[in-house]
């Protein structure tokens, strides 16, 4: 595919979807579903009222805090579990039990503990991203080929140096996969968290627009913003995977 084509066809598809959307709204005569232009006007209104950037900032702040906290605690936990087989065989059943629990199931408890506040949303995002980070790090450390471990030991590395120079870099690609999954889930969860636990942010925008006047143009605008920002987050974390010191771990090139 030539360079211009890799931009051209996606653009064509996007325009086609917008046209279909608009014609669909016109032909069906729906009173509920807004057309692209109404959504665009809704967005402009949000900017004019000075709400948009605040909402985006609030959502990103919650994701950023909960996610950072999950990384700060999850990576060390994963390392310990991956490094000490006894720790992992003791704790792994608990982790595997907690992992399939939807982060949203924590909503009632988060409100009991933190009230309607930022902390409740941050807690939910933490719960959403902690387990993927722990499990990926644990597996990454656990799966370091014995050959590499042996090579490190053979050259006389102390346990700390072995960890820093062999185990961690060898596990890093898998850790990054966990970070990316966790970021994706966090962005999904923040919407739900903001619908219930706080009164700002993009999730709040969606639920409030519906509750306070059935403004479906703003609902769709909020959804599109969530999609766009989520895409940007994923693209930026994918850039990290291109660094030469981790690229070897990714087969997708």
């Amino acid at each position: 595919m030539r360079r211009w084509e890799s931009y051209f066809w996606p653009l064509v598809a996007l325009v086609a979807v917008l046209i279909l959307w608009r014609q669909g709204v016109i032909y069906s005569g729906t009173k509920v579903f807004p057309s692209p232009f109404e959504v665009q006007r809704g967005l402009a209104e949000l900017i004019r009222k000075g709400l948009l950037w605040g909402y985006i900032g609030d959502s990103l702040f919650r994701v950023g805090s909960g996610y950072t906290l999950a990384i700060a605690l999850g990576i060390p936990t994963g390392i310990i579990l991956g490094w000490y087989p006894n720790a992992s065989s003791a704790l792994n059943p608990v982790i595997q039990l907690m992992r399939p629990i939807s982060p949203l199931a924590w909503i009632p408890l988060s409100i009991v503990w933190f009230g309607v506040s930022n902390f409740a949303a941050i807690f939910l995002i933490f719960m959403a991203s902690f387990f993927p980070v722990v499990v990926a790090t644990m597996n990454g450390v656990h799966n370091v080929p014995p050959m590499m471990r042996n090579a490190g030991v053979n050259f006389g590395l102390s346990p700390a140096a072995l960890f820093r120079r062999v185990i961690f870099p060898a596990a890093l690609p898998q850790v990054l996969v966990g970070l990316r999954i966790a970021l994706g889930i966090s962005w999904l969860v923040v919407v739900a968290a903001e619908m219930i636990a706080v009164d700002s942010g993009l999730g709040y925008l969606i639920i409030d627009s519906r509750n306070a006047g059935k403004r479906y143009d703003l609902v769709i605008a909020g959804m599109l913003l969530i999609g766009g920002i989520g895409l940007c987050l994923d693209l930026s974390i994918r850039r990290v995977e291109l660094l030469k010191s981790v690229r070897w771990g990714f087969r997708n090139e």
Partner: peptide, 8 residues
């Protein structure tokens, strides 16, 4: 040759 460290 799999023993070389791919991150270096």
């Amino acid at each position: 040759e799999r023993g070389v460290f791919p991150w270096m």
